[in-house]
Nucleic acid binder design. Structure first.
Length: 283
DNA sequence: CCCCAGGTCGTCA
DNA sequence: TGACGACATGGG
């Protein structure tokens, strides 16, 4: 892929294995939304950004060359060779079809604190409500930013919310998850859980650490490990993946973890996201 | 009033 | 370890 840098704008020429729809609609992130045909808008790194896709290019608006090279290129996982991943993952027709369906998925490297809070909220919840609650969290505690005559709110730093109480979360209507979020904020703000530490650990060690947070269980931990720490041996198993693996692969629930580890190995996270997106589409 | 949603916790065997 | 109900909230 080739990058062209303009005034507050970046153009990606001939994007390969990268499409806006697949990447932003595959369910991995909650703050990027379709705003027009071929256009998605969202916030990361405290900046609202608009992506526009046409035949042979993707344009990113409100972004400098430095921001792109220092942050967004990693956020979008643009430097990874997805052709190689897809070659490694083809051992059956199911994953093959799933990869064709979601050919433009890139696994986003999401900001750690945001990822933790978002996926704690996501448990036993549905996607519209998750998005609403995450936006509400930002509206309550983030910074207001205007962009294209619209108002956006950043995802707050942990410092900004380290003293909040669960009553402060009441407007979000997230029920029992409030105490989970408070515990996560406490452990992250004190440094007991830190991105830098986790990123140096192997998958299982980092997972054990994340599981010490109340409200982070097996599945949420795997989502954080995959979508923020890029630990690709993670294979988050939720209701959709259970549905896919039992119906498409004829597995019992208990067999899913072993199956992914043995068959998808270090590419499990990619496989999971292709399968998740595929089964959710109705196929 | 039922069931479900990108699950997790506490409890009991 | 493993099964199982409870847990907030809102929508179908």
């Amino acid at each position: 892929m080739k990058y062209i840098f303009l005034e507050n704008k970046v153009i990606i020429k001939n994007p390969e294995n990268f499409s806006l729809k697949d990447t932003f609609d595959c369910g991995q992130c909650f703050r990027f939304n379709k705003t027009a045909p071929g256009e998605y808008t969202g916030i990361a790194f405290k900046k609202p950004v608009t992506f526009k896709e046409t035949k042979d290019l993707i344009e990113i608006d409100n972004i400098t060359k430095e921001e792109f090279l220092n942050k967004w290129i990693y956020f979008l996982d643009l430097e990874r060779d997805y052709n190689k991943i897809k070659e490694k993952l083809i051992h059956d027709d199911i994953i093959k079809k799933a990869m064709e369906f979601g050919q433009g998925i890139r696994i986003l490297k999401q900001e750690f604190f945001e990822c933790v809070i978002s996926f704690i909220i996501s448990q036993q919840n549905n996607i519209p409500k998750i998005k609403k609650a995450v936006e509400g969290f930002c509206t309550l505690f983030g910074e207001k930013i205007e962009y294209n005559n619209k108002v956006y709110y950043t995802f707050p730093d942990v410092e900004k919310v380290k003293n909040i109480k669960k009553e402060d979360l009441a407007p979000l209507k997230i029920g029992y998850r409030d105490t989970y979020i408070i515990d996560a904020i406490n452990k992250i703000s004190t440094g007991e859980i830190s991105y830098d530490e986790l990123s140096k650990m192997a998958y299982s060690e980092a997972k054990a650490k994340l599981l010490t947070v109340k409200g982070i269980g097996n599945k949420v931990a795997d989502c954080i490990l995959l979508f923020s720490l890029l630990k690709f041996d993670a294979f988050p198993v939720d209701t959709w993946i259970k549905k896919a693996m039992t119906s498409l692969y004829n597995l019992k629930e208990k067999e899913i973890a072993d199956y992914s580890r043995i068959n998808f190995g270090e590419y499990s996270g990619f496989a999971q996201q292709y399968i998740f997106y595929y089964i959710r589409s109705g196929m």
